[in-house]
Every structure is written in structure tokens, then in C-alpha cells.
Design a binder for these strands. Structure first.
Length: 343
DNA sequence: AACTCGGGGTG
DNA sequence: CACCCAGAGTT
């Protein structure tokens, strides 16, 4: 199923006009540069825009240019990324800044093809930077655009795939006036009007051309994705303190909480006894429980058990508690640290 | 094609 | 509680 040129132009123009009056006041729209846009797009992957806005300003102040980030330490990028999640993105961003300096003379490249060579930049982000920062006539499809075009065409099949959605987005951008406005407007519409649960169809600039609206199927289109089942895990975190120092570990560069720091923690698929925990750290006693909490991720439900220990035989790396703010922690480990006053 | 990567907002 | 979010990389 496709739409013709006239329909595409009508829809695109209506969205562009709506966007010119309804655009939210977001920081990267006021201080609009390709580097700022690349930053915002990478931070916004799978992350709601309101949560990105606050952090973006800190990021652009600390790293105003690709070079400033390329010359910094990865840890400095992770520090500003704390709480945003998907920490691999921060490591990729650092890599991308180095690529930009090494291969593109310090300027964010302009074409989709070049942008795709950057670490962490896929089809969506490449199209977004090319079209929004440089006004290239290239389509983009994110979760918002997917929902908007599915509803426009009342496309509620499970079989609807990326290819179909990208073709729809292509037809719209091919017949719009200003690609940057159309693409950003499509996403804005999905984020603020054509929302998943309670769409505000009466406010929508294209409801008269929306097949789902005409059929009253807005809430059935598109079909929801199957939620991954949550695996239960048990993490045992131990606060080892020695005067004004605390033991910390640096997590691996891949996997969960990549590159972040933590207090010594055991990860297990089943419950462990106090004896097993003590055995792991080679301490026989002085292991005192401080509490537990649940930490839920998209595909995991983790039960955290927090201990403190005044005995230490295992090789541990000690750091001054006064420098804790220099280490990036994911939220779960921030909760762990909050169980004890460390100042 | 299915998994793995966070954490919070929303209904 | 389920579902979603300006997705990308790996297997």
C-alpha cells in the first residue's frame, strides 16, 4: 500500500505548518548546530525527550565541539551520561567524536553514507542528522514516525515491517517543502499528539487524512510489540570501607552498565547464602546486611542485596570517598551507595 | 530474526 | 501491571 504524490504533499505540508507553530522549546533547537544535533540524537535513542533535555545542556557546555570530546577521557562522558541508561551509547559517542576529528576534519559529516560510518550511528540517526541539521531530503523512521504513518494508513498488521514504514517516510519527505521541518514535525506529532495510549486526534493537523481516525482504530494501530520476558537475577553488593576509602570495581566495556563503576558485586541467577557471599570475597565474618531493593530493567528483574564488611582479604581496589563524584555509577549502584553514609 | 542493552513516564 | 521511548550492534 502506498500513497500518491498529491496525498503525500498534502500530509507533509500540513505537518510542516503545524510544526512551525507547535514545536516544543528544546535546547538543541535554540542552539542549533550539527554537533549539537548529533549529541541530541544519540542521547535520545530509546529515551524520552524530556529526560534528554536537561542533560543535553550540560553535555554541550562541557563538550562544545567534537574535538573537545575527542581530547577528553571516556569517563568524563560517562559522568554526564549517568542515569540516562544504555551506557554503550556514551562510549560510542566518544568514539564517534574521535572519528569525526580523525576522518572528517573535526566537522560532523553531512551525508547519510558518511554519517553511517560513525560509531553508534544507524539508519535513523544518520537520516536525522542529515535531514535536520543539513536539510538533506532523506527519510527517518523512529518509534513516533512508525506510529504516525501506521495510523495514517490504518496499517495494523503484525507483518508490517521496517521496509514498509521507511517507504512511507520516503514518500512524505520526497513531497514536502523543507525536509528538516517535515521530519522533525513527524516525530513531534507522534510524541505530543499521535501518542500511543491517548492520542489527541481532535488537535491533529492531518486527522482528515488519517485512515485509523476515520475507522476509529487509533488504539489498535500499530500492534504492540511482544514484551520480552524478564529474567530474575540476584546481585550481591558489598560496601568495603577502610577509614576514608571504599573498594570499587570498573565494569567491562561491553554488556550491562558498560564502563560504569560499582562497589564489589556478585551477579547470580539464583539466591546465594551469606556463607557463599563471604566465601566469594574470602571473608568469614563481619558481613552485615544493610538491606535489599528491586531494580527492574526491560528484560531483567534484579533483586539487590546490600552488605557492608569490615574485613577484607581479597584483593580490592581502594578509592578515597571524597572522590566518589569522579566515578560514573548507574542508578542501581547509586542506590547501593545510598545505604550508607560515606562522607 | 531475535537478543541485548536502562530507566522512567504513562495509563 | 503492560507498554513505550527521536535505535544500534551482535549473534
Amino acid at each position: 500500500m502506498t500513497i500518491n504524490a498529491t496525498q503525500s504533499a498534502n500530509i507533509a505540508n500540513a505537518i510542516e505548518n503545524w510544526f512551525s507553530t507547535a514545536a516544543r522549546d528544546l535546547p538543541w533547537r535554540n542552539e542549533d548546530t550539527p554537533w549539537g544535533r548529533l549529541l541530541s540524537e544519540l542521547m535520545a535513542q530509546q529515551t524520552q525527550i524530556d529526560r534528554v533535555a536537561e542533560k543535553w545542556t550540560e553535555m554541550i557546555i562541557r563538550f562544545p565541539t567534537p574535538l573537545s570530546m575527542a581530547e577528553s577521557e571516556e569517563q568524563d562522558v560517562l559522568l554526564l551520561w549517568q542515569g540516562l541508561g544504555y551506557y554503550r551509547r556514551a562510549r560510542y559517542l566518544k568514539e564517534a567524536s574521535e572519528q569525526i576529528c580523525r576522518e572528517y576534519g573535526g566537522e560532523v559529516p553531512q551525508t547519510v553514507e558518511e554519517l553511517l560510518t560513525l560509531r553508534g550511528v544507524g539508519k535513523y540517526t544518520a537520516g536525522a542528522v542529515a535531514s535536520i541539521a543539513y536539510n538533506a531530503r532523506k527519510p527517518i523512521v523512529d518509534g513516533n514516525v512508525h506510529r504516525v504513518v501506521c495510523r495514517l494508513q490504518n496499517q495494523g498488521d503484525y507483518s508490517v515491517n521496517d521496509k514498509w514504514t521507511w517507504k512511507m517516510a520516503s514518500q512524505l519527505v520526497d513531497h514536502c517543502d523543507t525536509p528538516s521541518k517535515l521530519n522533525e514535525g513527524l516525530m513531534e506529532l507522534g510524541a505530543t499528539v499521535c501518542t500511543p495510549k491517548k492520542p489527541k486526534c481532535e488537535e491533529c493537523p492531518v486527522h482528515s487524512m488519517c485512515s485509523a481516525f476515520q475507522n476509529g482504530t487509533q488504539l489498535e494501530v500499530p500492534k504492540p510489540k511482544a514484551a520480552p520476558q524478564k529474567q530474575k537475577e540476584f546481585h550481591y553488593a558489598v560496601l568495603f570501607k577502610k577509614q576514608n576509602k571504599i573498594a570499587l570495581e570498573h565494569r567491562a566495556g561491553k554488556g550491562l552498565w558498560a564502563g560504569m563503576w560499582q562497589v564489589p558485586t556478585i551477579e547470580s541467577s539464583k539466591k546465594l547464602t551469606k556463607k557463599e557471599i563471604g566465601s566469594h570475597f574470602d571473608v568469614k565474618q563481619h558481613l552485615e546486611k544493610l538491606g535489599t531493593f528491586k531494580h527492574t530493567l526491560t528484560h531483567k528483574m534484579i533483586e539487590f542485596h546490600v552488605y557492608e564488611c569490615s574485613e577484607y582479604k581479597k584483593q580490592l581496589d581502594w578509592y578515597d570517598t571524597a572522590t566518589l563524584h569522579e566515578f560514573p555509577f548507574a542508578n542501581a549502584q547509586k542506590k547501593v551507595l545510598s545505604f550508607k553514609s560515606l562522607s
